[in-house]
Amino acid sequence: MADALAGAAALPGAAAPAAHASLRGVTRVYPGAAPVHALGPIDLDLARGEFFSVVGPSGCGKSTLIDVQAGLAAPSAGEVMFEGKPVAGKVPDGIGVVFQEDASFPWLTVTDNIAFGLRRAGVDPAEVRRRVEYAIGFMGLRDFARAYPVQLSGGMRQRVCIARTLVLQPRLILLDEPFGALDQQTRLLMGDELLRLWRETRATVLLITHALDEAAMLSDRVGAMSARPGRFVDLLKTGWPRERDSSLVAEAGFGAITARLWSHLRAESLKAMGGAPP
């Protein structure tokens, strides 16, 4: 039944050596009377099946990075690739995006929300039912299948949005601070679920977060970004095993990782706030 969510496994040419997704010299400048240089230049290669997190001070262009990789926004310069093809003007098939804001459709039940993308894509109804059923079970939404989003908590709604993306079987999942609006406990538990989902789908994950512990616990690699215009100041490997969960926070290595991330971010966050590091 696990194959109901696994998009990566079915992909032909999965052994291709090239990066699954990559950004090459990407910048993004918001034009206007006073143009804002939001991002880059950035170089990033995501290996297939990798869990990569980006941390950075607020306003450093983290969300812009997601938009550009997803094809929701065009880069001002540079090249964006996904599975060997350039990403241009349109979200390519195989990329799923989860936003920070609640993006559930209030006029649809949980089930219909999750089935939404599949139905628009014209997927066979029996197949829609199979995948939605599985996603509902996987995300722990069984009791709320017929509820409307307004009846759910923020964490539950975010699960609906994740499930809605999941059923499309993305091979690259982009998450833009998906747990930003949730409380700390819920965040840790959602992190566990995200890990489970990542293992099961074998998808590549790019997670934007402002929480150092989240990045340190979830990722294979973490990129620390500078204040605007955002650039990577550090790329660090966590070295965690694939089978992992939030109990990692008790590991000795965990503290070392968060400390190293914080040493970069402290200075950058101060810059972002307009101060200078003492």
């Binding site: 997803a70 929701l72 349109k90 979200v91 098939d93 990329i95 799923g96 995006v97 936003f99 804001e101 609640d102 993006a103 459709f105 939404f116 993308g117 628009r120 894509a121 949005c161 809605r164 993306t165 499309l168």
Partner: peptide, 14 residues
């Protein structure tokens, strides 16, 4: 209309 709904539509390739 919350812009994220339209962004979701684009992300789902509508």
């Amino acid at each position: 209309l919350p812009p994220v709904l339209l962004r979701s539509a684009r992300a789902m390739r509508l």
